[in-house]
Amino acid sequence: MSDLSQEQWAKQLKADENAFILDVRTEEEVEDGFIPNAKNLNIFKGQAFIYELEALDKSKNYYVYCRSGGRSGQACAIMNEMGFENAYNLLGGFSEWTGDVEK
């Protein structure tokens, strides 16, 4: 797992043609807005979250975020344990995101 600053995360994401953006917040949080093209998998769903991760392509590069960076860090650690090689945690999370947002 790599913790990336907001600037590093955005720059690396923009240049990555194998990128997959993963939002691990709750559905209620997502209603406040999300990073364009992000797929939402709520980390609080427990085992269901694990099943959803298992369905993902492990060859992709995952850019993971939550509200402040804590849950996404946990998600990246879980993903690494499951065999995902490239999971990047957005430090500061969505609350510090200054890029594009969709509602």
Rank of each mutant, 00 (worst) to 15 (best):
D3T: 14
L4T: 07
Q6P: 02
Q8D: 12
W9G: 11
W9E: 07
A10M: 12
K11P: 01
Q12T: 12
E17D: 15
N18A: 13
I21D: 11
I21K: 11
I21N: 13
L22Q: 11
V24P: 04
V24K: 02
R25H: 09
E29Q: 09
V30E: 08
E31I: 02
G33C: 04
G33Q: 01
I35A: 00
N37I: 11
N37V: 14
A38F: 11
N42G: 07
N42H: 05
I43P: 02
F44H: 15
K45F: 10
K45I: 12
G46E: 06
G46V: 01
G46S: 05
A48K: 14
A48Y: 08
F49S: 07
F49M: 10
I50S: 04
Y51T: 10
E52R: 10
L53E: 05
A55W: 02
D57I: 13
K58F: 07
K58H: 09
S59C: 04
S59P: 00
K60R: 14
K60F: 03
N61A: 10
N61F: 02
Y62E: 08
V64Q: 13
V64E: 13
C66V: 10
R67N: 15
R67Y: 15
R67S: 14
S68F: 05
S68D: 05
G69S: 15
G69W: 08
G69E: 09
G70F: 08
G70M: 12
R71P: 15
S72M: 10
G73W: 05
Q74P: 03
A75W: 03
A75L: 02
C76E: 02
A77G: 04
M79Q: 12
N80V: 13
E81M: 15
E81G: 05
M82N: 04
F84I: 01
F84V: 00
A87C: 14
Y88V: 06
N89P: 05
L90A: 11
L91A: 10
L91Y: 01
G93V: 06
G93K: 06
F94W: 09
F94V: 06
S95L: 10
E96P: 01
E96S: 14
E96H: 07
E96R: 11
W97D: 02
W97C: 04
T98V: 12
G99S: 09
G99W: 02
V101F: 02
V101D: 00
K103Q: 07
